[in-house]
Lab assay of single mutants.
Amino acid sequence: MQRVNMIMAESPGLITICLLGYLLSAECTVFLDHENANKILNRPKRYNSGKLEEFVQGNLERECMEEKCSFEEAREVFENTERTTEFWKQYVDGDQCESNPCLNGGSCKDDINSYECWCPFGFEGKNCELDVTCNIKNGRCEQFCKNSADNKVVCSCTEGYRLAENQKSCEPAVPFPCGRVSVSQTSKLTRAETVFPDVDYVNSTEAETILDNITQSTQSFNDFTRVVGGEDAKPGQFPWQVVLNGKVDAFCGGSIVNEKWIVTAAHCVETGVKITVVAGEHNIEETEHTEQKRNVIRIIPHHNYNAAINKYNHDIALLELDEPLVLNSYVTPICIADKEYTNIFLKFGSGYVSGWGRVFHKGRSALVLQYLRVPLVDRATCLRSTKFTIYNNMFCAGFHEGGRDSCQGDSGGPHVTEVEGTSFLTGIISWGEECAMKGKYGIYTKVSRYVNWIKEKTKLT
């Protein structure tokens, strides 16, 4: 034993070699072989497995989906700052455009905790909710729209109204504003409101030439003092309507412009014939205590009207009353817009006519005020429907199939267009061939041609 100890002390290297040989010859039971080890760690190889990531292109799944990435790591994937920024906006807080917040056709661009709407022409605001041009839906104005110097929408209202708090709607500024039905039992019968379409306001006024200088022999019209197929109006439903009495009662109609003036057809009036105007009328054979009678003290036909040349060209006249009318729910003026808007309103496509005229061709006159909704007829169809001249200051309205029309005794009465609950004068009943005849239409004086003249002559002093 002493000898062994001496050998170990003198030859430590020998001992180490012996131990190493023993270990190498022993069977290893701690580690699995290569094949079995792979069965336990069965993990798919990654895209760049075996390579240094710093030297390969980034992978979106590896960089940002398996674990949260930084902007720089995302930049490695896209290799483009702009594309990385677009991805980053949604990656950080989701897609803010998912709810489609942009209105009126706006395009949404996502941002971090926010979004941006790219608005089409005519709109602005956070969600493109603000109209900035009158060309689109009248700028959301209830009545009139004008573009300011910086191309912003400025709404306005006709006389007797003021802008509401929203700067879009119009509200009454006087007790009985024009064009409004205020009798409670008839307010439910107000005709369907007309909503502004998209309009090209630059070209809204037709490029028409008034044929002022045409000389033409007097034409022989049949029954051209021209509501057939209409309905009984309720008291106060058309408070701007008046009836004219002269040699015979209810020979023509008219509309209240203001307390002192009536507008009617020029062919209705004769110099030297006494005319009485009755406002607030409903049943011409009954006294309903809503009527107001006034005498006409002055007749002003349009300066281009000449019955000797043509009885229905420039067929418009103004009547001055001896005493002002007292405005109330049964006696209310009709609204008159400017030339541009009167023309736009007419193009809405349908209007209402009213009167006490004959209820059928050569038949009896109506006792109760009649009204009828009539569609506008395109000019080409209008011209083809008659052998008589249709001037540019006239328009056609009615039904091709016949059966409904204005008729004798309705002449001078109103053709009105309702705009968001307020009625505007767009025409004056003038003439036609018979009444409600198939293929024939009622012919009306186009008020847009005469609004400046009306307003100039009827100013209240």
Rank of each mutant, 00 (worst) to 15 (best):
Q167T: 09
T209F: 06
N42T: 11
R294H: 01
N295Y: 07
Q167P: 03
C128N: 03
G403I: 15
G254N: 00
T426I: 01
A266S: 03
F348A: 14
Y444N: 02
V269G: 03
H400A: 11
I297V: 12
Y312I: 09
A317T: 02
E79N: 13
S25I: 10
N222G: 13
N245F: 04
T287S: 12
M394C: 05
I299Y: 07
V174W: 04
N127G: 11
F176E: 02
N151T: 08
Y391W: 10
I275L: 11
I262L: 03
W453Y: 01
E72S: 10
F71H: 04
A279T: 03
N104S: 14
I15P: 03
E142Q: 06
G421K: 13
V377S: 04
L24K: 02
P333D: 00
I256C: 01
F348N: 14
F221K: 12
K446E: 15
P172A: 08
N42W: 05
K152N: 14
Q143N: 01
G442P: 08
I256D: 00
D33F: 02
K39V: 04
R384L: 12
A380G: 14
W240Q: 00
D131I: 05
D131N: 14
A397P: 01
I17A: 03
D93G: 14
T225K: 10
I344L: 12
V153M: 11
I390G: 11
N304P: 02
S107D: 07
Y201D: 08
G58N: 12
H289F: 12
E27M: 03
G13V: 10
N59M: 05
K146V: 07
V269Q: 02
Y371G: 14
T276L: 04
I15N: 00
Y305K: 02
G253A: 13
A164S: 03
L425Y: 00
Q408C: 12
C170V: 00
R83W: 04
C108A: 01
G351Y: 01
I112T: 15
G349F: 10
K387C: 05
G427R: 00
I210A: 10
V296F: 00
C155F: 00
V92H: 06
S430A: 10
C141E: 00
V174P: 01
Y201C: 14
L20H: 02
G236A: 08
Q167M: 08
N48W: 10
E82P: 12
E434G: 14
E79D: 12
I256K: 00
C119W: 01
N147P: 07
Q185W: 08
S25Y: 12
L130E: 12
Q237E: 04
G229W: 07
T186D: 12
G229Y: 10
A233W: 08
R191I: 10
D315M: 01
E259T: 06
T186A: 09
T342V: 03
S169L: 03
T276G: 05
Y352L: 13
N452E: 12
C170A: 00
A164F: 03
E61A: 11
G50H: 12
Q241C: 05
L32R: 07
W240K: 00
V199N: 12
T461W: 07
L425G: 00
S99Q: 15
G94M: 06
S423Q: 13
Q2L: 10
A26K: 00
I136V: 12
D110T: 13
D249C: 03
V195A: 09
N127M: 15
S11R: 12
L23G: 01
E10F: 13
N166T: 03
I40Q: 15
I336P: 00
T422R: 03
E288F: 06
T215H: 03
L372W: 11
D93I: 14
S385G: 13
C335R: 00
I136D: 09
L103I: 04
D405P: 13
H302M: 02
G58S: 10
Y22C: 09
T84M: 03
G427F: 00
A192G: 06
R384A: 14
G413E: 02
L130H: 09
S182Q: 06
D200C: 15
T84S: 09
K188G: 10
K137N: 07
Q241I: 13
R180A: 04
L318V: 08
H314F: 10
P177D: 01
V248K: 09
T461M: 09
Y305M: 02
C108Y: 02
Q219V: 04
V368R: 15
D110Y: 14
C128L: 02
L189D: 05
Y312G: 06
E53F: 04
S350K: 06
K137M: 10
R140L: 14
R46C: 14
K362I: 05
E159F: 06
L383M: 13
Y305G: 02
D95A: 14
G280N: 02
Q90W: 04
H34P: 11
L460C: 12
H400I: 14
